[in-house]
Design a protein around this nucleic acid. Sequence first.
DNA 1: AGGATATTTCTGTGATCACAGAACTTGCCA
DNA 2: TGGCAAGTTCTGTGATCACAGAAATATCCT
Lengths: 177, 177
Amino acid sequence: MAELTPVTQKFILHWGEMGTRWGINRTVAQIHALLYLAARPLHAEEIAGALAVARSNVSTSLRELQGWGVIRVVHVLGDRRDHFESMKEVWEMFRIVLDERKRREIDPTVAVLRDCVAEAERAGAGEKLPRERLSQMLEFFETMGGWYEQMRRLPTPVVIKFVKMGAKMRKLLGIGG
Amino acid sequence: MAELTPVTQKFILHWGEMGTRWGINRTVAQIHALLYLAARPLHAEEIAGALAVARSNVSTSLRELQGWGVIRVVHVLGDRRDHFESMKEVWEMFRIVLDERKRREIDPTVAVLRDCVAEAERAGAGEKLPRERLSQMLEFFETMGGWYEQMRRLPTPVVIKFVKMGAKMRKLLGIGG
DNA sequence: AGGATATTTCTGTGATCACAGAACTTGCCA
DNA sequence: TGGCAAGTTCTGTGATCACAGAAATATCCT
């Protein structure tokens, strides 16, 4: 890996910063950014060199990125080191991240909410108010989850078209902004 | 504030946990959960007691929640203490949180991406590949941002109807799942 | 003005997280 | 089967974050 250009550096630093804001380890996000911009798959040593972090750190971060499903191992002929490349399709990439966050965080939240509502029902009148509030929140998550499940099944180009249609839909529904 | 019921406790603990996963301080998220379920506005002392945290901690957390715009101060006649209540409209509440995150994180990201693309253009052929990749990401954020801007202007009931229509839209567009 | 209560800001400590370097494991090749 | 390179896991340290308690400030009431 050659020295990083200023543009690449700027993006990597910002992406790392954004990561931390969304609960992603900074190094993990930086490696992701690096691989996203890299012209070819990189091996651990190159990544460690480019970002000036320890190889052990790179190793665990790569594993985590694989867990998210946004990078993958590739092999180069005549080189037994693992090389890594990021997905390049941005829409697809974010879909995967959303899927994963839904699975890890939203689905468990829905489960907890269902539990809470059920328990509140058993508890009777004393829990009426919390039960209603929790039901409202549960309904929100379920509705959004259902919508997302539909969207995520559409082929990416359709979703893109869909999103770009956004402005028109407003008129379509006859609602003034 | 009376002792928390098991249901309330469960939700508060989970909400706190979710907070940390999304870059929100645990206590902040817990207070939010508590106020969301509370039958009436609570003052700092009650909150501190219910969650068993220091009042100073409550003070700063309440300030942060006000910064997000999801709680507000109310006053009770004959009591000079500040009381706090959470928004109760779930859809509205999440819209506010999304607005805020967009403002704090997405908009700056778009700005950085624009910078990077511009700089890459100036740099010429050497930066062709990163420029293309960054442009793709920029376009993604801009498209999604534009879509969101439209959606957020719609009255909440319309958005709800919209989201619930999700499944039908698929057929409407003539796409099989 | 003085005292009581409410609230915020400051400060030190404890907990958690991030990470480098070392130790260890795996797999290939001679 | 010994040796080397790649990769992973372990361990200790430093940095960051969260938070309690203290100190300071503000507000109201008499």
